[in-house]
């Protein structure tokens, strides 16, 4: 595939319909024939009304959802990987090395301490455990998670704390593509600004960022280019 050197994601023809077999086979079309290109060093904000499929598109980019048609080419080191057709181990390699996804909810093993939850992406890349923990701790400190909480599992944390743990997990290893689903939704102003700073730093370091930001101030602060999705009516 011949693409400019700074293109990190090239998605085309993406179409997604949910078919609910448990509800009589109801088909819910979400989007059709979407084309999206994301370059290194830019922030793209998925924009559109609730139900337009912003989260679904984000999840399709990271291969959490499988589209009915289309492709999601991702630059992974020297390779191009189509997240739609790649075998699971290649998708996982892309997620480990290249693409971080910060979802709205933190899903981890119940008893694992926060510090290890955040350090895990580094350890998965082969980083030494002590060094990984140190970097995880630094990031948690920056996000105002008090050190006394680091040894606890995040399950008992407040919504805002959990979200910051989730953000830390996403940013701890510098992956070239960041997919962010409402990363500041339940944060107070001070913490929101910290996350905005993190996004800007990543962008300035050359990361390609795709996010859903409900907050116009945040969109402006990270200099986002808008990518608008239209709401579709349920097809018969």
């Amino acid at each position: 595939m011949i693409l400019p050197d700074d293109v990190m994601i090239q998605a085309g023809g993406l179409t997604k319909t949910f078919v609910l077999h448990t509800q009589g086979g109801t088909a819910i079309p979400v989007f059709r024939d979407i084309t999206l290109t994301v370059r290194a060093g830019e922030v793209v904000a998925l924009h559109g009304p609730s139900g337009a499929g912003k989260s679904t598109l984000l999840r399709t980019l990271v291969a959490n959802y499988r589209p009915d048609a289309g492709h999601v080419m991702v630059r992974h080191g020297g390779d191009w990987v189509d997240m739609v057709t790649a075998p699971p181990r290649h998708v996982l390699a892309v997620r480990r090395h290249t693409m971080a996804h910060v979802s709205q909810f933190l899903r981890v093993i119940p008893r694992v301490p926060t510090l290890d939850v955040v350090a895990e992406p580094l350890i998965a890349l082969g980083e030494e455990r002590t060094a990984a923990r140190a970097r995880a701790g630094a990031l948690l400190a920056r996000l105002n998670i008090p050190e006394r909480l680091w040894s606890l599992a995040p399950a008992t944390f407040s919504g805002g704390e959990q979200q910051r743990v989730n953000v830390a997990r996403g940013f701890v290893s510098a992956r070239p593509i960041l997919l962010l689903d409402e990363p500041t939704a339940s944060l107070d102003r001070a913490n929101r600004d910290i996350v905005v700073d993190l996004i800007r730093e990543a962008r300035d370091d050359g990361a390609a960022v795709v996010g859903i930001f409900h907050d116009a101030e945040v969109r402006a602060a990270v200099g986002a280019r808008l990518f608008t999705l239209e709401r579709r009516e349920t097809a018969a």
């Binding site: 949910f18 078919v19 609910l20 077999h21 448990t22 999840r59 291969a63 959490n64 959802y65 499988r66 699971p88 998708v91 996982l92």
Partner: peptide, 21 residues
């Protein structure tokens, strides 16, 4: 058959949907 989170979060087969739900 597929990536774990894909099968659980976006199940396609009627039986998988039933299982997950």
């Amino acid at each position: 058959h597929g990536l774990t989170d894909q099968v659980l979060d976006d199940p396609h087969h009627p039986y998988t949907q039933l299982l997950v739900s």
